[in-house]
């Protein structure tokens, strides 16, 4: 019986008991439940990674303008900006996360990892990581397997859906997956990988889902970039041995608890936060269909 991803503590215990790497436990889970061979699964993950890389390229090379006009080639502006705030690598990281997410907003092909709304974070972080550290694709595949295990636990203990847990559930989870993946790829211990997840969640807790006009554009796109930055900051802390104090499983529980108590208007309904601002409402009026038959209320 393969491990069922119910907690980080048990994941570690299972991997120790069976002398398996964390990503091998994920591989075994998928083989067991879906009946695919390890080779097929790794091929599928590599294909997903290639789609991520393509999305980054597309976002940086093709025109990215959404129908609403809110997305307007932001990634390219960042990539080509003459002002470098930290380092060229950081500038590229931000540009790439924006690029993949803009492709999503503009009806291009992406990997929903874990969701379409958070589809810029893993591409931005992993493409940049691979470039800086010259990592082989095999390491990227294992890092993605690990991140899938992280997502399975978050789905089980909290949520991955903005409509259920707010933005923390989408961009927060993607950033946690990315932080774990980075820490693994750079040789961090199992505890450091989990700490990276915990630290990221601590940084992303409470984020609400308040999309302007209900579209997956503002603030989703810029949040993908900031979440990519947080994932890297968290991995940096975890790899240095920083202790997040609250164990990762309890961080995930906190995320679930906050998601549950979050008001509906902050859960993808476009009724609160940025969506409810004066400008947000003006944009909504402009881009939403107004010619609509409203049925009478039922008694």
């Amino acid at each position: 019986m393969a491990f069922l991803f119910n907690s980080f503590l048990d994941w570690k215990a299972y991997s120790v008991a069976h002398s398996m790497e964390l990503y091998d436990v994920v591989l075994e889970y998928e083989q067991d439940h879906k009946g695919q061979s390890a080779e097929e699964i790794m091929k599928g993950i590599l294909r997903a990674y290639q789609v991520m890389c393509d999305a980054v390229k597309t976002g940086l090379n093709e025109e990215m303008k959404s129908r609403s006009g809110m997305i307007n080639d932001g990634a390219k502006k960042v990539f080509q900006s003459p002002i470098t705030v930290l380092s060229p690598e950081f500038q590229k990281l931000v540009a790439r996360a924006l690029a993949a997410k803009e492709v999503n907003s503009c009806m291009g092909r992406i990997v929903a990892a874990p969701t379409a709304g958070a589809s810029g974070i893993l591409p931005g972080t992993l493409v940049t990581l691979q470039e800086i550290h010259q990592l082989p694709d095999s390491v990227m595949v294992n890092a993605l397997l690990l991140s899938a295990g992280i997502a399975l636990i978050i789905q089980e203990k909290a949520s991955l859906a903005g409509a259920v847990g707010g933005c923390q559930a989408e961009t927060g989870s993607a950033a946690a997956m990315a932080a774990g993946a980075i820490t693994f790829a750079l040789g961090g211990t199992v505890d450091q990988q989990f700490n990276a997840v915990g630290i990221t969640i601590q940084c992303m807790l409470g984020l609400v889902c308040d999309p302007v006009a209900g579209l997956v554009e503002v603030p989703c796109v810029v949040r993908n970039a900031s979440a990519a930055a947080i994932a890297n900051a968290s991995a940096q802390m975890a790899l240095a041995g920083l202790d997040p104090v609250i164990p990762v499983d309890q961080c995930v529980e906190a995320m679930g608890e906050i998601g549950q108590s979050m008001e509906t208007r902050y859960k993808e309904t476009a009724l609160g936060g940025l969506a409810a601002t004066r400008t947000g409402q003006e944009i909504a009026k402009k881009v939403l269909i107004q010619d609509i038959d409203i049925l009478p209320d039922e008694d």
């Binding site: 889970y29 907003s105 503009c106 092909r109 990997v111 379409a116 893993l122």
Partner: peptide
């Protein structure tokens, strides 16, 4: 499936 965590591969913007 882990292909719902890393996936699906799809056309955006929303599943």
């Amino acid at each position: 499936s882990i292909f719902n965590m890393i996936g699906p591969v799809m056309i955006g913007p929303s599943s």
